[in-house]
């Protein structure tokens, strides 16, 4: 019962802490304009990095925005880590192997929940019952096997890069090794637990037990579940929670592109920000006692 509850708690904490981090950054004061082009939402111009400021009297003209090209770039970044692919290919292979593995494992977990719910309602997840159960059966195997394999290989490669690259070694803190080791521990204990049954029937059964709070513990399983839970809780406040940061850096900073025009929503935000007088002030003499102009 406790073990089942701890899974729920870890998932809730993962979501709660991610939201907390999100709110923390969102509540920081409005930042200065810091776009970098290309900005994908610039309709027709994003292909070469152009902006609305290429138009004379741009403020009199409607800002041509393309939500679809923004969405496409966003998906490319989320699904394929496009930026890393184009600027640092050798690292992309390692990083993408890990991230794609992680995405597949998330999918695997969702498929296990669906499978467990199906079995709890009396539909066996087997290739011979129906097309849908067969699909679920095989997809679970593929996502699980490939997910564990490439995520683990990715983490090992990332770790080796940190350990053996003479440059990175100098910049890596113990915490950063710990992050990768924690992921490796969670993944490798998972492999140890599931490798005897690659049809993942036992995994589905475990998920059903978690759903009904009736987990039958075994030592390896307990170790794996606890490690996975610790990882889940540890990710959001650590730098591995960069899925939160990336939303702000891309959407709110590099791609923001919202001029402070009269009557725009940005005008209200700027006014509110300007009305907020800072409690802290700088100490340099020219700020404390500014000189008067001569003319």
């Amino acid at each position: 019962m406790l073990l089942g509850l701890s899974v729920y708690l870890a998932v809730i904490l993962f979501i709660g802490l991610s939201v907390y981090q999100f709110v923390k950054y969102a509540r920081m004061p409005l930042h200065a304009r810091m776009e970098l082009y290309p900005v994908p939402r610039e309709r027709g111009r994003h292909t070469y990095g152009g902006s609305y400021m290429e138009e004379p009297e741009w403020w009199r003209k409607p800002h041509q925005i393309s939500r679809s090209s923004e969405l496409i770039d966003m998906l490319k970044e989320m699904l394929f880590i496009k930026k890393l692919f184009s600027s640092h290919r050798s690292l992309w292979w390692k990083s993408y192997s890990f991230h794609l593995g992680l995405y597949l494992l998330i999918l695997w977990a969702i498929l296990l929940i669906i499978g467990a719910l199906a079995e709890l309602s009396g539909i066996p997840v087997s290739p011979s019952v129906s097309f849908w159960t067969a699909l679920l059966y095989y997809l679970t195997i593929i996502t699980g096997v490939v997910g564990f394999a490439i995520a683990t290989v990715g983490v090992i490669l990332l770790l080796m890069r940190r350990v053996f690259d003479p440059v990175l070694k100098k910049y890596t803190t113990p915490q950063e090794y710990f992050n990768l080791l924690l992921l490796l521990a969670a993944l490798s204990t998972g492999i140890a637990v599931w490798i005897p049954d690659l049809s993942f029937a036992a995994a589905r059964q475990l998920v059903a037990q978690i759903l009904t709070l009736s987990v039958v513990p075994d030592i390896m399983l307990v170790i794996h579940l606890l490690l996975a839970e610790v990882t889940l809780i540890y990710i959001p406040p650590s730098k591995m929670g960069h899925y939160v940061g990336k939303y702000f850096t891309y959407h709110k900073i590099l791609w923001e592109n919202e001029p402070n025009l009269a009557g725009s929503p940005m005008e209200d935000k700027v006014k509110a920000a300007l009305a907020n007088k800072p409690a802290t002030s700088w100490g340099a003499p020219h700020i404390q006692n500014p000189p008067a102009p001569e003319a």
């Binding site: 950054y25 920081m28 930042h31 440059v167 950063e176 850096t249 900073i253 800072p278 802290t280 002030s281």
Partner: peptide, 23 residues
């Protein structure tokens, strides 16, 4: 701090999240 309103958030993000990937 709020003495540095216009940069606080972008700076905090760079401070917190840099993975030192060296790209």
């Amino acid at each position: 701090s709020d003495a540095n309103k216009g940069v606080w958030q972008p700076l905090q993000l760079a401070y917190d999240y840099c993975a030192k990937c060296d790209t």
